[in-house]
Every structure is written in structure tokens, then in C-alpha cells.
Amino acid sequence: MKEQASLYVPHQGAMLLVDTIVAHHDESGTVETTFTPDSMFADADGIIQPLVFVELLAQGFAALNGYTNVIQGAEEQKGFLVGVKDIRFYDTHPVTVGMKLTAKLKVDVRFDDFAMVHGSLSHGVTLLMDGTLKLYIPDSM
């Protein structure tokens, strides 16, 4: 499976961090991205700061959730990252433009308009970070 993530998230242009949905299951999935040299998130040396990875995971979940809504014929939802829990950064080598990053996301629990989503980000076999996102996803806005 390969789906263009931009079809399922509200982010556009320079703010869009996720390129492709590569796997989708009921409450989990995988997305990929590669930062380009013109990315506003890359410094002069082409290094991407690790805190950007949290937003990348949130957008990854937004893409997966948006895709789910489309295939189920549900209304489009907007979501908001409202917190993080147990975020850990593992590798000390910098992430630079041109590196393909893979994010795996899985819903741990949904309650009312909230979801707790565990995510991890890797480059090849190297785990870069993982943790839990707290998301507010109202039924309507």
C-alpha cells in the first residue's frame, strides 16, 4: 500500500511533515517521510532537531485517522496534539535531510474525544524516538 498522506491531513506546504502512508490497519499504521534540503525544519547543516519528531508522529496519526475516515465514509475530523508522555530520544547521531524516516503508530486507548497513541520513529533499523501522544479529536468542529 502507498497513499499520499497530504490527501488526509490539513497541513499543507512547508508544514506538511508526512509523505506516505505505507501500512494501515484498524487502530495502527505506518507512515514515511524524507526531509528535503528546503525544509523549514532543517538547519543550515541539514540537521533536523529531534523535537520536530513529535509533530511528525502527530501528523502521521492524522494521516492514518483521515484515511480511516475516508474508507469508512465518515466525516473529516480535525485533531489537536494536547500532550506527550514518556517521550524518549535514543540515537545520538543527527537526522539529516535525505534520510527516510518511518513512523509506526498504534492507538492505545480512545475515550470520548481523546486518544492516546503510541508512536515510534526509526531510520532503517535504528530507533530514534518513541512515546505516547495525547490527542483531542472532537466529533465535530
Rank of each mutant, 00 (worst) to 15 (best):
T126P: 01
T96C: 15
S140Q: 11
P37H: 14
V117N: 01
L17S: 00
L17R: 02
A42Q: 09
L127E: 12
D45G: 08
F53V: 08
F35C: 07
K100Y: 00
F41S: 00
G131A: 11
V97Q: 11
Y136P: 03
M141Y: 06
T68V: 06
Y136H: 14
G124T: 01
H118G: 08
G83I: 10
R110W: 04
G98Y: 08
A44V: 07
D19S: 09
A44C: 03
A42H: 08
T132S: 09
P50D: 06
P37E: 14
Q4T: 15
V54N: 05
Q12K: 06
H24D: 13
D113H: 06
Q49R: 08
H25P: 06
E75L: 14
P10F: 05
F53S: 02
M1A: 15
K106S: 15
Q49A: 12
D45V: 05
M99N: 04
T36F: 13
T102R: 10
I48M: 04
V84W: 07
L101Y: 00
A42N: 11
D91R: 13
I21N: 00
V125D: 07
D86W: 07
S39V: 10
D139C: 03
S6E: 01
V97C: 14
L81E: 01
D91H: 10
Q59P: 04
S140V: 12
M40P: 00
H93E: 12
H93V: 10
A14W: 06
T68F: 05
T132F: 10
D113I: 06
H24A: 15
H24W: 15
M116L: 14
G124Y: 03
I71E: 02
F111R: 09
Y8I: 09
K104T: 05
D139K: 12
A62H: 03
M116V: 08
T126A: 13
S140A: 11
L105M: 11
F114A: 11
L16W: 00
G83W: 06
H25G: 13
I21H: 03
T30D: 02
M99Q: 08
L51H: 09
Y8E: 02
D91C: 10
L135W: 00
H24T: 07
V54K: 07
P37A: 14
K134R: 12
E76R: 10
K100V: 02
D38M: 08
K2W: 04
M141T: 12
G73L: 06
D108P: 01
G79M: 03
S120A: 10
L16V: 00
Q72C: 07
R88M: 12
A5S: 12
D139P: 01
G46V: 11
V82F: 04
M129F: 04
F35A: 09
Q59G: 03
T132L: 11
D91E: 13
A23S: 15
T102L: 05
A58N: 05
S39L: 08
V9W: 02
A14F: 09
S140G: 15
D112W: 08
K104S: 11
V84E: 06
V97L: 13
V22S: 15
V18C: 12
D139H: 08
